[in-house]
Design a protein around this nucleic acid. Sequence first.
RNA 1: GGGCCAAUAGCUCAGUCAGGUAUGAGCGCUCGGCUGAUAACCGGGAGGUCACCGGUUCAAAUCCGGUUUGGCCCA
Length: 1066
Amino acid sequence: MERFAEVPDQYDPDTVEERVFDYWDEIDAYERTVEHRADGEDYFFVDGPPYTSGAAHMGTTWNKTLKDAYIRYLRMCGYDVTDRPGYDMHGLPIETKVEEQLDFENKKDIEAFGMENFIEECKSFAEEQLAGLQEDFESFGVWMDWEDPYRTVSPEYMEAAWWGFEQAHERGLVEQGMRSITQCPRCETAIAKNEVEYHQVEDPSIYVKFDLADREGSLVVWTTTPWTVPANTFVAVGGDVTYAKVRVERDGDEEVLYLASDVVEEVVQKGGYDGYTVESELSGEEMVGWGYDHPLADAVPDHPDFDGALQVYTADYVEVDRTGLVHSAPGHGEEDFQRGRELGLDIFCPVDGDGTYGDSAGRYAGSFVRDANEDIRADLDEKGLLLADETYVHDYGQCWRCDTDIVQIVTDQWFITVSDIKDELLENIDDSEWYPAEARDSRFRKFVENSPDWNVSRQRYWGIPIPIWTPEDWDGSMEEALVFGTREELAEAVDQDVDPDALDLHRPTVDDLTVTRDGTTYSRVPDVFDVWLDSSVASWGTLDYPSDGSRFDDLWPADLIMEAHDQTRGWFWSQLGMGTAALGEVPYEQVLMHGYANMPDGRGMSKSKGITVEPGEVIAQHGADPMRLFLLSRNPQGEDMRFSWEETEAMQRRLNILWNVFRFPLPYMRMDGFSPDGVSLADVRDDLETVDEWVLSRLQSVEAEMADHWAEFRQDRALDALLSFVVDDVSRFYVQAVRERMWKEEDDPSKTAAYATLYHVLREVTALLAPYAPLVAEEVYGNLTGEAGHPTVHMCDWPEADAGWRDDRLEEDVRRLREVEEAGAEARQQAERSLRWPVTRVVVVADDERTVDAVDRHRPLLRERLNAETIELVEPGEDWGEVTYSARADMSVLGPAFGGDAADVMNALNEAEVDEQSLGALERAVADATGMTVDLTDEMIEFETNTPPEVSGVEFGGGVVYVDTALTEAIEREGYAREVVRRLQEMRKALDLDIEAEVRVAIAVDDDRVATLVRDREGYIAEEVRVAGFVDDDELDTPHRERFEDVEGVALELAIEPVAAPPASD
RNA sequence: GGGCCAAUAGCUCAGUCAGGUAUGAGCGCUCGGCUGAUAACCGGGAGGUCACCGGUUCAAAUCCGGUUUGGCCCA
């Protein structure tokens, strides 16, 4: 890129993006930046892999933008950062999408289509989605190793999962066991509890009588799942709950019911009884051991009737609600299962994985459980056991992928028994730093404390096959099972001849492999891993460990991961669990936990509901850099963000200001052939003026502040500091202050010093901006440095504050001076005297010594900024002799206080003029005027300051600024000359003249006195406007003339003509 | 149903941990100014029941309890 080349007037994100993307390609900017840091200290960042089932939404975009910013920042700090992106490509969500595409209903369709074909379809679906995501990420400038992402479907990655699982197994943390699980009957697999979504459904609500075996009467239970009654094994009571023996009566028939005392009335009513009597009360404890008859004994001959079944037990899940007696089926409900286990009861589950009853369900065998509800109710009714039959609307779980109502059943599943290492998990938590810290200590810790064993098996196809081979007639002991951790181990062991390097670990390839030992044949268990296990091994999967052992020892564990807060129970947890199970350590050292991307109105985004803001649209509207700036300006620690179009647009405007600041000096530097390489800051140190020193000091302060914020993972605060420096300090103050120096034609050390200063500031700013807005930073940097800099701004070192340029006193001085200046500008405005016109004097009445020092040290600067001939300073405690104070009386207070004298006092007060702002002075003035001695209070009056005519004053934080706008001939001379200059400049501009082009000018002023004043300043006008000659109006035959009727009271006419022929307009 | 987090100007947010006048910030709006950075820039102004209810305190946006709304997680 050519140095100081001409740039467009306006920052246009689109063209900048286009150019920079091409440029990056052309010079291999990413590769060279990575190479540039190859010898740096290792920094192991691990990318949480997005799931490949859709385009990048705003949340993913925020996440990747944060990652990109931190990776760029760390690189600039010198680190050799691991930046391998990852993609999570297995799992049920993809299977169901493919099933939809292929119009499949259930597993049978898949089997008919062929498992291998189906898996191929899943693979190509995931590949397509990966390509789309990757394109999205690149579209907003994310630099990661796109050529070589880790993919959970690659043999190396799958092997990483196998290896981790094998390690866990070797620690004795793998077991098969029965568990009550949430099963999707359509997908025919267990799904994780966090994959269950809850919606309201209407279910049966039945009250059933369980006839007692050894005594009169029946237990009344309530359930919304009649289909679980066949599996009823016991009835649970609360040990401390009071139950009642109730004799009820209907149509002359009597019966005895047992239920909680508190609900007798309610249940009797539901049962439609005519009346009841409570015969006795007893505690739940007293009922323990009572036997009862299974209500569906005839229909389900295989029903539980083993030792200990069909009895009353206590359980802590009992609530006095409905009947206070809980139908318990350890073959279904999770709590029932746990209690059943505790009680040593056998587990009876007559329901298969597809939600239909098996043979053990007797009469109901073959029917779908929810369809069987009707029959069961009818059968219970027929036996007279249905006390009440209603419906009930409640939240019930559905499969997140296909919306099918889940069923709770007990099946054999594979587990990593993390509950065995809970203490270790909790200890390991402390080895990681979280930002924000509270997230770790509240939510995460609580979750880990309550985490159950991890069910890692799924009865599906598209996943990493579980690497367990079991012998025929396996007894369930893990010692008998074979677990393989690598392809090589497997290839060596199996009966078939396989090449480990060519082995695809997916089903069905591995399903056919068998192992024979001592005459026993081992075959693989058919399940695949829960997809959460895939990403849980990312910290070594990223390194292709164990198949490639070259980097693991140096890098592992991860230095940093960053994801949204939903990953607390997701990836943050799964990595802790897997890392601890396999390696005994938490696999990450720092966690940056950010929030969710919400809609501008605060609602969550939802693609299915069409409530989204699409990143692509934002980029099209405002550009990638402005979008990134917006995302990076949000607190990244735990808090959700609301997307804001307005704020994104504001970021675009701020970049435009930066763009203007950057292009402002270019024409001058070009014209003067300024060469930054030959002129360092140190070279011009002696020529620096106060504003230069100030802006350089501010730069150091900003750099120091930004460093602190970045270290605390608050890039948003660092960005604030940077942008307010650019907008407030550089654009609004520094550039304004140096404009005149840059306009100077001749060579001038002060001008060179300003060039060197601004150049330095801009170059550092581009580096500071690079992690945030990598595209525009590149463009600006390239233009500033040309061939002399790095090929890309992203190879720069992160600018560090240089104490040698820092001057806190000066910064504080200027801060105060800017307050004085603002007040002065306001005072001018009140006096209607524009800044173009000098004023004779500005008087600063200071309240404190610090302000005095600031003003005193920088009188010339303040004179220049306020266009004042002199600055007068009145120190604290001194009065400026030229103001007096008067009072405005408040009659509503004076009246009650002074009665009949009030009017006189008021007049005296209003007319008083005193030298100091005190009640005492006013009291004396009143005494002088009226002869009365009065006690005044603050409430009675309001002080007013009286300034001399033509002086106006405005208060500021450190005092009052007075501006004396009285005119003198010298001021008029200067003022009118500047009016003329300004108008001529405007006319030059309208002609589109080159900055250096010379003109001839005619000036006609309708007032002789003013005409003479202007003529006195022709030299100045000539210099400012590049006038080659002043001529009489009639000598100038030009269409470029303009008449101004009222310029500070006079009319004037200006004509202008370029000396050479005007340049062809382009 | 339970846990965690949030609610401050029209908008986006500081301030809340360590209670002490909201000179709150930027953007937007509005009035004025400037004019070789000019679709930029500068100044003035309007704009707040600090979500609601209650408590502690001389004093609460800030601490405590509850409610509402939103987000996430869990059931």
